[in-house]
Amino acid sequence: MTNSELQVLVSSWMDDLEFIDEGVQYLTVTVPKENLRDLMFKLRDDSEAAFDYMFSLTAVDWGKNRGMVYHLESTKYRHIIVVHVNTEDETLDTISDIYPTAILNEREAYDLMGIKFTGHPDLRRLFLQDDWVGHPLRKDYVDEANMIVK
């Protein structure tokens, strides 16, 4: 399916989706965080979309808010979609039951970016020690001893 067909399909499911046109490689959509799980279920289960393979989950600190960027691919049709979701209060719904690959990836995002995933079965720090203070990938993280800032 081409990007434009895909855009028509995805926008037919729900209203408040924003498509990003500039500076992107794949079809990119921003979804409000309340609708994240709905959209993911649709993306996975819809027979024409069939996005069964989530190959990348990235937590990004946008400055004013934080969010996740999900990269999805369909192993059947080989089309790719990128889903953005942002949060003001550092909580997001988990998608680890929809895409199990998110179990570890969401733990990583929690560990390094401090996004709390509600409903995650086992949200603990993954890389850092349990008593570590702060989340290193945030832009405002300061560690004068270990970080070399240019």
Partner: peptide, 18 residues
């Protein structure tokens, strides 16, 4: 300004740069 993704096949599987 923008987002770029590149995937390649490494010896262990799909390696991606975002």
């Amino acid at each position: 300004k923008g987002e770029y993704y590149q995937k390649v096949e490494s010896a262990r599987g799909e390696f991606g740069v975002f």
